Amino acid sequence: MTTKEIVLQVIDAFDNNDVDKILDLFADDVIWTMKGSNLTISNGKDEVEKFLSGMEDVKVVSSTYDHLIVDGNKAAVDGFIQCKNKNSEEINMHYADFYELENDRVKILTSYIVDKKD
């Protein structure tokens, strides 16, 4: 599978709240840093699973990406995502994600998320 195909599968898994698929696409020792929130998941897939299970009340309504740039085992994607929480309140965010793959798995993910201002 190509880097582009893997990243598109990750995006699709996040869009569909498919935690099992996300974990399948991540390396066992994945490091996920969310800039702006001072959150770094550095203990691998178990910690990612715990984090995502805490997000069960947030569902993706729609997601688009504007750019997907691939260079070997690295990729960058940016776009816009709309979610709703358990109270049906909308959460609208712009995002940019930077991926580094190793052995066809996401080894490092760095995410920048900015709330949309009305």
Rank of each mutant, 00 (worst) to 15 (best):
E5M: 08
A13P: 07
A96Y: 02
F98L: 09
K21W: 04
N85A: 07
I41C: 14
L101Y: 01
V30A: 09
K107C: 15
K84T: 13
Y95Q: 04
I22M: 06
E100Q: 13
E56G: 07
K50N: 01
K35H: 07
W32T: 15
E49L: 11
I81R: 00
A75I: 04
L101R: 02
A76R: 08
V48A: 08
Y99A: 08
D57M: 05
E5I: 07
V48Y: 01
M1R: 10
E102T: 07
Y65K: 12
K116N: 12
S42I: 09
A76T: 11
K74R: 00
N73H: 05
N16K: 11
V30R: 01
S111R: 10
I91A: 08
F26D: 10
V19Y: 07
I11K: 14
D18H: 05
E56Y: 12
S62N: 14
Q82P: 01
D12V: 06
E47P: 03
L68N: 10
D66E: 10
W32L: 12
N17C: 11
E100L: 00
T110R: 09
K4C: 06
N87S: 15
Y95R: 04
E89N: 12
F51R: 13
T2P: 00
D18W: 02
N43G: 04
I31W: 00
S53K: 12
N73E: 12
V10E: 13
T2E: 09
Y95S: 03
I91T: 06
K45Y: 05
I22P: 02
E56D: 13
M1H: 03
K45C: 11
I81C: 08
D71S: 14
G36M: 09
L8W: 00
I108N: 13
Y95T: 03
V60H: 05
D20G: 08
L25G: 04
A13V: 09
N38G: 15
F98P: 04
V106G: 08
V77I: 12
I81K: 07
G79L: 05
I113F: 09
D115C: 07
E89K: 15
N85S: 05
V114S: 11
K59Q: 12
L39N: 13
Y65C: 02
F14Q: 13
V7P: 06
S42M: 10
G44R: 00
D118N: 15
I113V: 15
Q82E: 13
N92T: 05
S88W: 04
G72C: 10
S88V: 02
G72I: 00
D15A: 14
N85K: 09
S63Q: 09
S37L: 11
I91M: 10
H94E: 05
D115N: 07
W32E: 13
H94K: 05
D29W: 03
G44H: 05
E47N: 02
N87K: 15
A75P: 03
F51L: 11
N92C: 07
F51D: 11
G79A: 05
V70F: 01
G44P: 00
L109S: 14
G54Q: 15
D115P: 00
L109N: 11
